[in-house]
Design a binder for these strands. Structure first.
Lengths: 371, 371
DNA sequence: ACATATTATGGTAGCGCTACCATAATAATG
DNA sequence: CATTATTATGGTAGCGCTACCATAATATGT
């Protein structure tokens, strides 16, 4: 029986490979790989039964399941996602739009997404918006046209046009990271307003009064944090516009140093600084080292995101831990549930954040427990 | 005339949207978007002419070009890449396999790739092998089945199976980063053997003698550098196996600290260390700060890749600059040339590397010029 | 003027798969 | 036992596009 199958298999393979070359009237080439029809012929069933077996195996009798499985293995058949998507109007691609590939913040989230998606039928396709709303619009329209199974967005300021397109598409959408901003469908993230608020409160508790705010690139993310910083400073009656230092340049450690030099010149009396991300915070630390400003005594520093190196730095740097890996995982989890038919109301998942206070903001008598 | 077109357009759009709903015998739904046939009907040409216009505009008369262009704009037509790929057997996707998304090394290359590819018809699709050869095999086979326009690989140890698959596929392949390892087709990168050699030579020139080697994850990349380090140390008669400290753990700044503690305990007399990447080097710097080991006097440190923060660190850290952005650009450039029909022999492009000597290895009287 | 090469255009038949329908085979009901 | 539900299976006609061929329209040569 096994022998027979092999023979049959060989003949069939032979047929597949030659029917094109030998044909007088040059037929279309085809991919050269086994198709669903080849599998069907070998298993002696209708091609639609093979298709059904691949999608809903339970609707095919055990007998045919076995024959088809054997045939698939013999021919080394793999379905063509293009043809599938074209015929069904749906694809197995989940589009993920992120603003940057060089930012560890997003790569952590991507890891979570990857880990959650492997062993499923879905694939992810990354789109890099590069912090440009125009580029985002372009990508949203590009992706939606391809009828993705779902989409994940990392943007605070999705345009009206894109929002409408996304909503009308009927594709599950998950917006990740900041919970602020208008919701299209489901959201997974944390409140960056609360986070910034907590940072300011923390610094005040530690006795700092002239607390600055430093940010680069000034995207919606940074603006949101700045506004929250402002509010909290005003609430405490210590707000001073001069303590804000921002730029449109791209964030980097070197930029953190540069900005801090300017900041310190403008504000010789400043005693702390809240950096909108960890790169800047690290730069501030380095600049302080260079200038002999002692941390945390003369200058308190807090970053945002809690990258791995914050804990390893000397002094260790306080930062807001955002649960990025978990965000990626939960985004996919939510999508999978909905694609499996367990329809869920669009909802908002708050994964929270943790202010990790380390040496860089732990002034005086307090006992620091750096991680 | 314009008015007429609008009317006509409206009618046609109306037709597209309703012909399905009203039809008694439930026809296939379709995507709802305008197709090439809709464009052809509106422009009063054959659909194949529209197809031709999209691919080889010069083969269509000016008159029809204008009619078709107008029709495309009116209908807001965008070609469906799935259908294209299915019909033509080729896709516009360039597959890029990288071992990690959280590594800045690769994100720089991706930036180069992105920058070079925009404004072309091609798209990139990223595959993350996570440093696993099995995963790489899986992805290679997955990608090749989809008939990508080209592929970019970042792996030193592509399996025999994958190599064969890639070669037989007739798809342009570019391997990037290290020039070492067997070539499938074209390569773009630098010699990591020469780079490691130069690092050791540099440290020796600076008067260091007990030079260690630190590496994590021990992938082929790290092993290659270690072997080159060994050879160079042996050549100078100062090799000592005990000076090598490696682990399978994932690289991180914290790990750099941890490994250095062990290293220093085992080798109290060590006076320099070559780290296989910058994260580890930064960790070493921090650990030295913590232990009061002065750099570069008591300990010389050199990293690899020259991430941005190396220059900003205090002390600034010596590192090997690999021209990663350029590598990405050149990889795509090579691919585009070949896809445009300018067939080039598979070749090897060496973008070189630069050892950037900074404070961390600039001992004694020498004048440092940190960037 | 004619035959011959060179465009320009379109018809048709797929690419590999699935939605929709139809039918056959089996089970459940009275 | 006939009659109705419930499976199980397959045929057909697309999804939106392009390769292959055929034909029409124009230019070129002798």
């Amino acid at each position: 029986m096994i022998f027979g199958t092999f023979i049959y298999n060989d003949i069939l393979v032979f047929t597949i490979n030659n029917q094109r070359k030998e044909s007088k009237l040059a037929k279309r080439k085809g991919s050269g790989y086994a198709t669903i029809n080849d599998v069907a012929k070998l298993a002696e069933v209708g091609s639609i039964t093979v298709s059904r077996f691949l999608r809903e195996p339970k609707k095919v009798s055990i007998k045919l399941q076995k024959r088809i499985t054997k045939s698939i293995l013999n021919l080394n058949y793999v379905p063509d996602p293009k043809a599938r998507a074209l015929a069904s109007g749906k694809s197995n691609v989940i589009g993920v739009l992120i603003p940057s590939l060089s930012n560890n913040v997003f790569s952590d989230t991507l890891r979570g997404i990857h880990d959650m998606i492997k062993n499923t039928q879905y694939q992810i396709q990354i789109g890099n918006t590069r912090y440009s709303l125009d580029e985002e619009d372009r990508l949203v329209s590009l992706f939606i046209r391809q009828r993705p199974a779902a989409m994940i967005l990392t943007s605070l300021g999705t345009s009206e046009k894109s929002c409408k397109l996304l909503k009308n598409s009927n594709v599950p959408i998950v917006q990740i990271m900041e919970l602020e901003g208008k919701a299209i469908d489901t959201k997974v993230g944390y409140s960056s307003i609360l986070a910034a608020e907590e940072v300011v409160t923390h610094l005040i508790e530690k006795g700092y009064l002239r607390i600055g705010y430093m940010a680069a690139r000034m995207d919606r993310r940074s603006i949101l944090r700045r506004d929250s910083y402002r509010k909290q400073m005003q609430k405490n009656g210590i707000y001073d516009k001069q303590l804000e230092i921002t730029t449109l340049e791209l964030s980097s450690v070197g930029l953190g140093r540069k900005l801090f030099r300017t900041f310190k010149k403008t504000n010789p009396d400043a005693d702390a600084i809240f950096c909108s991300n960890d790169d800047l915070a690290l730069g501030v630390i380095f600049e302080c080292m260079d200038q002999g400003i002692s941390i945390p005594e003369d200058m308190g520093v807090v970053g945002f995101n809690d990258l791995e190196m914050m804990a390893a730095c000397v002094p260790s740097i306080s930062s807001v831990r955002t649960n990025r890996y978990q965000i990626g995982q939960l985004a996919i989890k939510n999508i999978l549930q909905r694609l499996d038919g367990n329809f869920r109301e669009p909802k908002q998942v708050d994964v929270g954040f943790q202010l990790i206070a380390r040496q860089s903001s732990n002034r005086a008598t307090d006992v620091a427990t750096p991680i």
